[in-house]
Design a protein around this nucleic acid. Structure first.
Lengths: 222, 222, 222, 222
DNA sequence: AATGAATGAGTATTCATTCAT
DNA sequence: CATGAATGAATACTCATTCAT
């Protein structure tokens, strides 16, 4: 009667052998996901690829979703670690440099296992409880906002919330999609540099007010 | 196991009744997609909802994918039309105003049937031949590039290609996700204004060069 | 999201072919149930035995339970019909004769397809919504009580409710199990005669009161 | 696929610890059976509930069936003990009083752990070798028959075998189901009293012969 | 004796698609 | 043109049981 258990794991692998099994299962999941896509990801296939019986898979993962969840979680932890290390330089350099470092780290993180990253963040039929996903988002947002607030003096924007939103979305979109359509620029660092410019120009330069001429014309049109 | 035919439609509906059938099918598809999500979209259910036999559905659509393709195509045509009308003002106003108009139009287009829009662009297990999708992307890109080139004088960026890429991704990401997380700002026009600022600041203001100090420190760190 | 649909059938078979399919499925269910027992009753096996694809089975029955439900319902309808016809003689003969007729009819009904009957009433892991089962019970009880009330003059019992309960349970238990352990007597009519005696003696003869001696001794023991 | 061993236990628990293990397993079985039903009774779950490894369970019980068998056996032993004690009064009181005592004891026995009793006698997919179950039945029958024979003088029935059968079935059915549908009467003793009346009226009162009128009418109808 | 990791045949159920009527 | 009955490969998941440690 219990609905889909929300847990990621059914029980922790105690013995060494068990830990290896779990690892094999996760790697198989990653491999299928990256090389063949979500539609090819069936629990039986995962088990087979992992060289493990389907029963063993279900001994550790309550359902298919949990496989992806586990993989995602792990990936996000990696990503978060990367960002944290980049964050350490706050107070040691200029705002611009910090932004560049963060975006650079983000790009770098996406370059580690880009296919898996794509597979994980892209399509994935909206899964059940994505608390951790939301939590990840929220943590990121908090972090970025804190950074902006710490450098409020240099920022020419009032609505910090909206600004946070905009730059997170933009950075994520560009970095994420970059591997598919701008691989060269991504590897060379040019992409990171350009995204940094986008963000910095937006944050630190007072925007042009609309010229009176434009405004007038607009009103006439309406 | 039969190869998936790539066509969107099997044969064009000639008679009035047939056209009505096709229309009913597409509307049913849209309704299920927006109200219940992709997982609930089964061909049988679409047929039933449309008040049509499953056989009739397959008379006009070769497979499930074609349903979504048709819907997408139609939606993109709508979107493109909206943009085109906004494009007409090139040469009549300032670059800034044109950008604002385009982004405003984009936002407006997303507000027409946002749920369907989300449903169509978001999850959707990567479908087979998305030529039209790619073509749409390409057309958009060409258009934006043309616009940038037409105003090259005001733009402080060399790599127009990369710039085009960046702003398209950013705009799309922010506008698209906006309905979910920034609905108020989206409706009030604040979101469009802010995205415009992001884009304009990026395009028209020469970026800060890295201060020598920063550069030196970086090199030392490496 | 819909819980187990409680309905017995998904949709009524419209065409002749469909009706035949449904019939084949039900017969296959009955055959497996009687010849191999509940544990052997798998949906795939039923479909196979019926010479029908598993898909067809699920076109008409929402789940395994529905198969049994449909069979049960049909069986109970048969049984009820038999009883009704026997009931028609009320007012035409003596109470004793009516009771005999009813029990005789009951026995006869159990002799029609006794194996299926056993299979249906016996083990069957308590199924979900057995409204119809309960309704059947209730209808039976109402009927029997009405009969008793109509002959209250001849009945030497105050608590008609309890009496109804007792005789229904007893008759059912004896008749039902009779096929397994008293087949000869069941076929010869002796069983029915004996059960009738059980019921009639109980209902129509004032019970012996406990002798004072016994009562006294009991109290001493306590 | 290995043949199901018919034994109830693999090997007797010798040491104290082992005996405790077995006890824990049986109690867990009982608890799950009564509180969650047969469908929830899985060997792994039993082991877990018992706080014992699945391996240990199989050390003492060859298969799932053996769990239930052991529990049933124990329960029947309890029941039999209760009846035996009630049987001791033969020769000391009247037949009627003995019958009342036996039925009362039976009711009492069912009131000890009625849920477990239900769980054990009711659904339970017909298990393999139920020799002990049959033996129990047989012992009961022998006993009852002996009692009837000992009081043949007071009994107005020729076919003692059939009579034995009828009253055993009836008593069992009423007592057993009583907990579910006549709990009040069962606890108050009214149910026992009424069942006793059913049995005694049947056994000790010569049945009404069919009136010639009825017989004639019947023959005419046939 | 005890553990618990591993097994895998088996189960109910779905859904895109075909085709005879 | 339209219908809807029929198909069956495919899928997620369970659970009794074994056996190496």
């Amino acid at each position: 009667m219990t609905k889909k258990s929300t847990a990621i794991m059914r029980k922790p692998p105690l013995q060494v052998r068990a830990r290896a099994t779990v690892e094999a299962i996760l790697q198989a999941t990653a491999r299928i996901l990256t090389k063949e896509g979500y539609d090819a990801l069936t629990t039986n296939r995962v088990a087979e690829t992992a060289g493990v019986s389907i029963g063993s898979l279900y001994q550790y993962f309550p359902n298919k979703e949990a496989l992806i969840a586990a993989l995602s979680k792990r990936h996000m932890d990696d990503l978060e670690a990367t960002l944290e290390s980049a964050e350490a330089m706050v107070g040691q350099t200029s705002f611009a440099e910090i932004v560049r470092a963060l975006i650079g780290a983000n790009v770098a993180a996406h370059l580690i296992d880009p296919l898996l990253h794509s597979a994980l963040s892209d399509p994935l039929p909206p899964q059940g409880d994505q608390d951790w996903r939301l939590a990840f988002e929220a943590r990121g947002k908090t972090r970025v906002r804190a950074l902006l607030e710490a450098h409020a003096a240099e920022i020419a924007i009032k609505d910090l919330d909206l600004a946070t939103y905009l730059i997170m979305r933009s950075v994520e979109a560009c970095v994420h999609d970059g591997y598919r359509h701008r691989r060269e620029d991504m590897i060379s660092g040019k992409l990171a540099e350009e995204i940094s410019a986008l963000v910095l120009n937006y944050l630190t330069i007072p925007r042009r007010t609309r010229s009176p001429r434009d405004t007038r014309r607009r009103q006439a049109a309406a």
